[in-house]
Design a protein around this nucleic acid. Sequence first.
DNA 1: CAATCAACCTGGGTGC
DNA 2: TGCACCCAGGTTGATT
Length: 280
Amino acid sequence: MPELPEVETVRRILHPVIVGQAIQGITLGTFPEVIGSTMEGLDPVALLIGQSFTDTSRRGKYLILHLDNGLYLIVHLRMTGRLLLVPWIDPPVRFQYVAIHLGNGLDLRFGDQRKFGRLTLSTPDDVTQLDRRLGPEPFASSLNASTLRDVLAKRPGKIKNALLDQGVIAGLGNIYVDEALYRARIHPERSSNTLALDELKRVLRAVRLVLNQSLARQGTTFSSFENPYGEQGTNASFLRAYGRASAGGLCLRCGAPMERIVVGGRGTTFCPRCQVNRIP
DNA sequence: CAATCAACCTGGGTGC
DNA sequence: TGCACCCAGGTTGATT
């Protein structure tokens, strides 16, 4: 479940190791479709070999690796994707589908138990379109309670669904939306367009807090997330909402039993006493 | 246009 | 012990 903090954790580790490195070769596994290109008829593997990584960036949950021919390798981990740094000579990791051999003797390996993640060789225009399609970054100064209210004004749907929509804010997933709404004391099924400015301020502050805290702990490992060195994030034990209903967990604020419902097809944990679905 | 939902996968868990 | 079934969730695309 890599969301913004997990993807950014991966990026920060990869950056100093891969930038400046040339791609000496690429070995594909049993699922070669995992790597593709937006340029019709062009083989992404052939185009990648010989290129060097010049920079890394991130937009929402997309990891963008910059190449010196002006193209980009865009990686999305989806749910169970992993990027690992290991020596060339190491045996394949579990569910490994791509090994990018770097000049420094390391491999950048991509593995994915569920085959949802993708590596896509992309043009500058693709990156521009991605940027346009996504909402603001959670930490963008252009994002505030007032601009959020404007975006949500025409959305009568549930606030949880709006926050999961990458076109509203980029980078949030199920875990951090539940955490943020819990901290902001907003019911996940509250109609987006009924939130008052001070409530949106609480939401935004909570979003930024939970993302920052998770970033400081190298992300949340609930089941499968690992950084490129195979290390787990340590944020899971600090979660206050996500996953706490199934264990009969109590609200850490008021002691009421946490509740689990389904919102937009996703498991949702909240405190029925602190997060009341009512317009103030 | 917005909301909803199936589809994509597979390991792990549950119930019988 | 085995087996059928369900669940987890990010994104896309079809449908309502």
